[in-house]
Design a protein around this nucleic acid. Structure first.
Lengths: 215, 215
DNA sequence: TAATAATTCCATCATATGTTGGAAGCTGGT
DNA sequence: ACCAGCTTCCAACATATGATGGAATTATTA
């Protein structure tokens, strides 16, 4: 029962996959309505009907892009989570996680754009999409903010959301924020990482202490 | 030399002003390409050409909306800044600022949407818009993170950006995040404020200490 | 190699969308 | 009552956009 999406992921050279990648870039940059099927087809270098042949309606292609993105993010989060589990202090592990996650998102800013788009851009054809990813609880657990994944407190989830959103906005808003800070691209990435660490690490530490006080 | 925008602000009952307000709501909800001039005209209850009579091209109307929003935000920030300047501890002042600013933005989520849209949504007709608001330095100064408004460190600006973006995403992403936290609207706003305070206040305190160490 | 299936492109359609000209209505002053 | 100017609407246009049928081409299999 391999979905068309899974098939496309398996062979990145396939036309289906090429279209998916290009569509992600453009949807990320211009949003759903800002991207036309012709733009996608042209960038791939194919006729527009070839695109329809592979993915059908525009909305279906968009949904596939979002599903693919969610899948990839989940994978990356798992990867980061399983990275150097033992032998490191919680602080070091958090710093590493921030570094890796930041590098990953900076390497493909369209992904962050898409996520933020999904937050609030209504699609006019369809209502709000409440396919809420569940990995927030996983992250909270990995940060040591909960005893088990199924019972994460509201406060812990909110803290994780704040962290994630900070990264997303810093990545998505690079072209906007960078000139405000008057730094170049390399410095920007460093400042972002440092700021995130500066904010998050002590906050997580205090949240853990708070949690333990309750027990 | 009153610009058309200023004139429209003066009389909120004027057609120009009504169009501006409606346009802001729709641009905020659906984005630039997701909003059609007909949608705006219909919601105002006028013919589409009346809209063009008052504001001209769609892009001009959008620019007016953004300029209006920036103006309003600047005003609000000044207001919060001048609120209870003396007699309160820095912590209390920050808490108050967060409460007031959050309430304000939650009362009109479209504003936060528009700002985030401006971060990354390319308009396809025009390149990135680098009209970077300058009030970040003001906020940093008000928080006590700089000696004067003209020489705010990169770190301080980045910290302020992180704070602002957190608020924006929490407000814009309410419909997305709220179900994840499994809370109702009232609780959501409280959790957001508490999370922001939890993160920001200690961070600002530490940033100030760091700044003073350098001197 | 012949037959079948999968893929790609050309031409086209219906609708959506930005935009405008001009007629009609309204308002205030004379 | 008349006029001038401002405002609003109706009708229309050109282009953009999502979508499709069918021919042509390429790959697959027997």
């Amino acid at each position: 029962m391999a979905s068309p999406l899974e098939k496309a992921r398996k062979n990145p050279d396939s036309m289906k996959a090429k279209i998916l990648t290009t569509a992600r870039n453009l949807f990320g940059e211009y949003g759903y309505h800002g991207t036309t099927t012709r733009m996608i087809a042209q960038k791939v270098g194919i006729d527009i009907s070839t695109l329809y042949y592979h993915w059908g309606e525009k909305k279906d292609l968009y949904d596939a892009v979002m599903a693919d993105l969610n899948h990839e993010l989940r994978q990356k989060i798992d990867e980061v989570q399983n990275m150097s589990i033992e032998g490191e202090s919680p602080t070091n592990r958090l710093e590493l996680a921030i570094d890796v996650m930041s590098d990953f998102l900076f390497s493909q800013p369209d992904s962050s754009n898409l996520i933020l788009h999904g937050y609030f851009s209504r699609t006019r054809d369809s209502g709000p999409d409440d396919e809420t990813p569940e990995y927030i609880s996983h992250i909270a657990y990995a940060m040591g903010l909960a005893m088990d994944k199924s019972s994460v407190s509201v406060e812990a989830k909110a803290l994780v959301m704040a962290v994630c959103n900070s990264i997303f906005t810093f990545v998505s808003g690079e072209n906007f924020i960078k000139p405000m800070l008057e730094v170049d691209a390399e410095q920007y990435r460093k400042v972002v990482k440092d700021t995130l660490k500066f904010i998050i690490i002590p906050a997580v530490t205090r949240a853990k202490i708070k949690k333990e006080d309750k027990n």
